Amino acid sequence: TYYTVKSGDTLNKIAAQYGVSVANLRSWNGISGDLIFVGQKLIVKKG
């Protein structure tokens, strides 16, 4: 599943929405910090 980042989104918010961990979101998307951008597509695997 792909999720497109919207204004106001955070990794924590997206992780909670999908029932996954922030660590997994980072791993699946090659993100090291907490910086995400509006319009960015993130890979999300269902929890």
Rank of each mutant, 00 (worst) to 15 (best):
D9P: 00
N24P: 02
T4Q: 09
F37R: 09
D9G: 01
S27R: 11
L25Y: 00
G33N: 09
K6R: 09
L25D: 00
K45I: 13
Q17W: 09
I36F: 06
I31R: 02
N29H: 01
Y18R: 04
L11Y: 04
L42V: 06
G8K: 06
F37V: 11
S21P: 13
G47I: 09
Y18F: 10
F37L: 09
N12G: 13
V5H: 00
F37Q: 10
L42I: 12
Y2T: 15
G8A: 06
Y18I: 10
A23R: 08
R26G: 04
G8C: 07
G39R: 03
Q40S: 07
T4E: 15
Q17P: 01
S7V: 09
G33D: 14
D34P: 06
V44P: 01
S32G: 13
W28A: 04
I31P: 02
G19W: 06
G8V: 04
S32L: 14
Y3P: 01
N12A: 10
G30P: 06
Y3F: 04
G47E: 15
Q17G: 08
W28D: 05
D9F: 01
K13I: 09
K45R: 09
I14K: 00
V38L: 08
L35H: 11
A16S: 12
K13V: 15
R26D: 02
I43M: 11
V5E: 00
N12S: 13
Q40E: 07
S21V: 05
I14N: 00
S7C: 05
G8R: 05
V20Y: 04
K46S: 15
Q40G: 03
K41V: 11
V20F: 04
G39A: 04
Y2Q: 11
A23C: 07
V38M: 08
D9L: 01
K46H: 15
G39Y: 03
I31H: 03
K41W: 10
V5A: 05
G30T: 12
I36C: 03
G19E: 11
T4F: 10
N12Q: 14
I14D: 00
I43E: 06
F37M: 10
N12R: 14
L42E: 00
G30R: 13
V44E: 00
S32Q: 10
G47T: 14
N12V: 12
S27I: 10
V38I: 14
G39C: 04
V5N: 01
K13G: 14
D9E: 04
N24I: 11
W28Y: 05
D9R: 00
L35C: 07
G30V: 11
V5L: 03
I36T: 05
L35R: 11
W28S: 03
N24Y: 08
Y3H: 10
Q17V: 15
R26P: 00
S21D: 15
N29W: 01
N29V: 01
S7P: 09
G33P: 03
T10N: 08
N24F: 09
R26T: 10
N29R: 00
L42K: 00
K41D: 08
Q40N: 04
I36W: 03
Y3T: 04
Q17K: 10
V38D: 08
V44N: 02
L25V: 06
K6S: 15
N29A: 02
F37W: 12
V20E: 09
L25G: 00
T1H: 10
L25F: 02
V5Y: 03
A16T: 13
G47V: 13
I43T: 09
Q17A: 15
G33F: 09
K6P: 01
I36Q: 02
V22K: 09
W28G: 02
S27V: 13
I43K: 07
V22D: 06
L11S: 01
V22T: 10
Y18G: 03
K46D: 13
T4W: 11
L35K: 12
I31A: 03
D9H: 01
R26S: 13
L35Q: 11
N12D: 13
G39V: 01
V20N: 04
V44S: 02
G19R: 14
A16C: 05
G39K: 04
